[in-house]
Design a protein around this nucleic acid. Sequence first.
DNA 1: CTCCTTAATAGTCATGTTGACTATAAATGC
DNA 2: GCATTTATAGTCAACATGACTATTAAGGAG
Lengths: 276, 276
Amino acid sequence: MARQGPRRHPGASVAGADGAAGDREPGAGPSRREKEEAPGYDPRAFPPFAVTVDLAVFTVREQRLQVLLVQRGEDPHRGDWALPGGFVLPDESAGSAARRELAEETGLSARTVHHLHLEQLRTYSEPDRDPRMRVVSVAYTALLPDLPEPRGGGDAAKASWTPYVSLPSLAFDHALILGDAYDRVGAKLEYTCLATSFCPDLFTLGELQQVYETIWGVELDRPNFRRKVLATPGFVEAVEGPPRRTGGRGKPAALYRAGTAAALHPPLLRPEGRPS
Amino acid sequence: MARQGPRRHPGASVAGADGAAGDREPGAGPSRREKEEAPGYDPRAFPPFAVTVDLAVFTVREQRLQVLLVQRGEDPHRGDWALPGGFVLPDESAGSAARRELAEETGLSARTVHHLHLEQLRTYSEPDRDPRMRVVSVAYTALLPDLPEPRGGGDAAKASWTPYVSLPSLAFDHALILGDAYDRVGAKLEYTCLATSFCPDLFTLGELQQVYETIWGVELDRPNFRRKVLATPGFVEAVEGPPRRTGGRGKPAALYRAGTAAALHPPLLRPEGRPS
DNA sequence: CTCCTTAATAGTCATGTTGACTATAAATGC
DNA sequence: GCATTTATAGTCAACATGACTATTAAGGAG
């Protein structure tokens, strides 16, 4: 792992620009710091990094878990599919960049994007993950209900929902990122309430159950699922005047909306598989 | 959140250097890209970011949860306490940088550090988190057993274990990072086996229980805790010839070592509090 | 309109896990 | 020896879960 021998990195003289304690140097060794040029920081003296965000955006559509992908128009990997994302701008946080990019890619209103669940997944920083230069990418995961018009306007030339089970090969390490995101989403369904993020404002318990079944790839017992969800305070709340959903063939189902609880106690564990 | 209006960032002409699809621009707007200067990437054209790692290193010492802190020798925040950490070097990943820095700070052998549990926590990227320049920090969490000589040699001038309950004010956003790390560790005790990371090679179930009690700040029923741990395959494994621990006053306890399982099914839930 | 199918909802029962407790065993320190 | 301390064994009720069965309320076929 620590493939790095003692070596002074550029900008060591201004070490401490962040969490780094100023009196620390990468290489240790007998010769500690002798002098310090305290003032006059030169950003260029640091190893040059680009910082991007990548988004693993999931939805449940047509009974399948689907992912938002865009097609690259530039080398490298021109023409390959990739996760939506982009550069973090000089005065925004990675989270802001992720929301901004998501709005652009999906064509959702900034207000809608502002309210949806967007969670930081993990940061990918392998030195060779981009062939041209050092790029560190902060990955985010977003969960959307099935949208009327899934592929957005904005400036995303080619974007489309793709079933997770039939992914094309992806640019860079995006397959790795997407795999991590999938594992995380599956695991979070167990002990959080965020399955409701995949549902529209009003939904039936059957629809909520389908979210679990689709993502976990298992079948759940309907009465037991229902009992569990209703027994968890704040998971869902029944809608007032019993309006019932039309369209289907069987008995109409009661409608619910997402509750205020975030965690599930005790959790709703998957039948057999281990969480990631 | 998206405090950023339409604006072209430097280096837009080489957008797509990473997860970014090349045909995307930060600012949308009617005027899409007209021409592309494909080859000849200039790293300097990107917004300059420095990338660091920060480490939240926990141990259980003297019945208390303690954190490894270092004292800054440079402005800003000179003299303040901070998390150990440092810059990511040009050809190492953030994870490698974290291990390297941890070895330096604690004086542990590279081999020891290589084997311990080091987990990426989250990345902190608020634009103003460092007053001088844009610094994005990838935070890691490490869990150590009570070490013989806790404060390391290396080049960490002033490093020391500090009880989590009596933290000084910390530099930058390190109090935020540490709070997130604490929440994460507490939550992970519930559904993973990593409490054993706080224990030495051989330990008693009482010691393992103290880890939970110390971090969660609750008292657990001893027989119930024992029953749960032993019922979870792979959590701990009994040591062969029943050697028993001396020194204490009561009946000697059997010794165990960490098992191979990573997850706890079903989880060992905290008495009342919610997970983070 | 009636029967059949489909889906939602209600309820039952055995099993397994948990929390609260009691009991016994094996060491130390007067 | 005896109280104290800690480890370990075991009990029992409450609760949660998995596997079912039963009932209700719609749509569709004839």
